[in-house]
Design a protein around this nucleic acid. Structure first.
Length: 495
RNA sequence: GGCGACGUGGCCAAGUGGUAAGGCAAGGGUCUGCAAAACCCUCAUCACGGGUUCGAAUCCCGUCGUCGCCUCCA
């Protein structure tokens, strides 16, 4: 079984075969940078990050391009409103998005082109489209002639005739056909503009992606991705422009992710029902968002609410539980158990790959990981030693890592050392056993202090002084340190 | 109005012809001084109606409902 990818163009899954063996060119539409990015944007970047990671895991050398649209109506509008330069404003949000990419553990694209840095290519492309009769200029605006492309509408499944009838847009009378779209917009007062043979102006939205793809990846690319709200008109128009120019099919596989839904509606800037990436990361780990995305099909709408968020948070904890070491008194796994775990490990890997090969079925792939975790924990409960668990845990790390999860990552809670010292001193006094422990210095590390406190707690427990023992546990919990007791002693972890 | 997608247990969500993965929540149990964690057990016949088939959540028709696109949008 080889990798199958659902192609929006054909509306079915197709075996993945890149143009050039062993190499994949992938272009993903990035955000228009005029406001804080929200987790819907993050979802899209996460989806294609997983696609890229899996392709690389399959041995492909991936060239990944993601653009930033840094000149457009809304950017200009906002910049003018704030009385500042639009390019500067855009750059600010580009920097912010680059930080988000890092914070979310998304592999950076090989190239992050910006529209304003590709003007030469855009102008050249527009000129050639005019020369070849695919475009015409009116008063400095340049429009693409949709009737020149026989298969216009093939991606979104629309016909020009239908679109005319249903058009809600006020039609510009200067256009030859109502659906003709702008390649170039003539300069207006207070807007950035560039000189061209047909007059000063700025690029339309769709042309930049065509120009960048052509420039950085060539006339034909393997995968073109983006949110499914871009299918029409954006990607439809990209196809028209590019194919008119090159005479070749533009992208082999068109992949579109579903929209993130908040309270039953698409999360978007215009509706205002959004959670920014910044706000999300203030409250949650990046992996929580990733699990949220991985838990369902990338093509379907993704529900976002408190319950789902809680489920993802707990799910992450659960995955991490698989990495915990053997129990203190472990005797070693019985041969049958060790064999079963090894077999399960091999089966998990197979199942995982089969799931991912099926159009990146991440929710099935996740199910394999959860199953693997259960087997590991089972074995641990049945006295398996670290060496017994190791292969399965290694696979868990490998596969979760390939999805971009960082299970080994420990979130250390910021603790004021004074808080720990206070607990220690108080409890030491209560124990009335000063000889047993040294006083803690102010320079002691958090982990040292926690261990020292737990030693005291062990004495309380030996003396069956449960009230004091519980108090310590509660106070540490309040600081973000989870203490867990079991038959062989106590352990703790950040939580 | 046009195009498209979808409707699976309390929530989220796989599965597209052979009798329902997984996560969270919930209930019961093991362990534990207690708690937590972990482990074990329990928990759906797939919006509704009709049809095709030996057999359908899965195919076809209809009804209801939801969402997306048709305007900037990941």
């Amino acid at each position: 079984m080889t990798l199958q990818i659902y192609n929006t163009l054909s509306r079915k899954k197709e075996p993945f075969e890149p143009l050039e063996a062993g190499k994949v060119s992938m272009y993903v539409c990035g955000p228009t940078v005029y406001a804080d990015a929200h987790i819907g944007h993050a979802m899209s970047s996460l989806v294609f990050d997983v696609v890229r990671r899996y392709l690389e895991y399959c041995g492909y050398q991936v060239r990944h391009v993601m653009n930033y649209t840094d000149v457009d109506d809304k950017i200009i509008q906002r910049a003018n409103h704030e009385g500042r330069d639009s390019l500067e404003l855009a750059q600010e949000y580009i920097d912010a998005y680059n930080r988000h990419i890092e914070d979310l553990n998304i592999l950076p694209a090989n190239v992050f082109p910006k529209a304003t840095e590709e003007i030469d290519q855009i102008v050249e492309m527009t000129a050639r489209l005019m020369d070849d009769g695919f475009a015409y200029s009116v008063d400095g605006d340049v429009y693409y002639r949709v009737e020149r492309k026989d298969d216009y509408g093939k991606l979104s499944g629309r016909k020009l005739a239908d679109m005319q009838a249903g058009s809600r847009v006020g039609v510009d009378e200067r256009k030859e056909h109502p659906m003709d779209f702008a390649l170039w917009k003539s300069a207006k007062e207070g807007e950035p503009s560039w000189e061209t043979p047909w007059g000063a102006g700025r690029p339309g939205w769709h042309i930049e992606c065509s120009a960048m793809a052509l420039h950085h990846l060539g006339p034909q690319i393997d995968i073109h991705g983006g949110g499914n709200d871009l299918v029409f008109p954006h990607h439809e128009n990209e196809i028209a422009q590019t194919e008119s120019l090159t005479g070749k099919p533009f992208a082999r596989y068109w992949m579109h992710n579903g929209m993130l839904q908040l309270s039953g509606e698409k999360m978007s800037k215009s509706i205002g029902n959004l959670v920014t990436i910044n706000d999300f990361l203030k409250e949650h780990e990046a992996d929580v968002l990733r699990i949220l995305v991985l838990n369902s099909s990338y093509r379907s709408p993704l529900s976002y609410n408190d319950e789902v968020l809680e489920a993802a948070t707990r799910g992450l904890e659960r995955l991490r539980s698989g990495l915990r070491p053997a129990l203190p008194g472990a005797q070693g796994a019985a041969p049958a158990l060790a064999k079963a775990l090894d077999e399960r490990t091999a089966a998990s890997k197979e199942g995982f790959i089969a799931a991912m090969d099926d159009d990146f079925n991440t929710s099935s792939a996740m199910a394999e990981l959860f199953d693997l975790v259960r087997r590991i924990n089972q074995a641990r409960d049945e006295s398996a030693k670290d060496e017994d668990l190791k292969p399965a845990q290694t696979l868990l790390l490998e596969l979760s890592g390939l999805l971009g999860l960082n299970l080994a990552h420990q979130v250390e809670t910021e603790i004021d050392p004074a808080d720990l010292i206070a607990i220690f001193e108080e409890m030491r006094a209560k124990l009335g056993d000063a000889e047993s422990s040294q006083a803690l210095g102010v320079d002691v590390g958090s982990e040292d202090a926690i261990r020292a406190i737990l030693k005291l707690r062990e004495k309380f427990r030996e003396a069956k002084q449960w009230a004091a023992s519980d108090e310590i546990r509660d106070r540490l919990a309040a600081l973000g340190v989870l203490v867990e007791d079991n038959a062989q002693g106590s352990s703790w972890r950040w939580g």
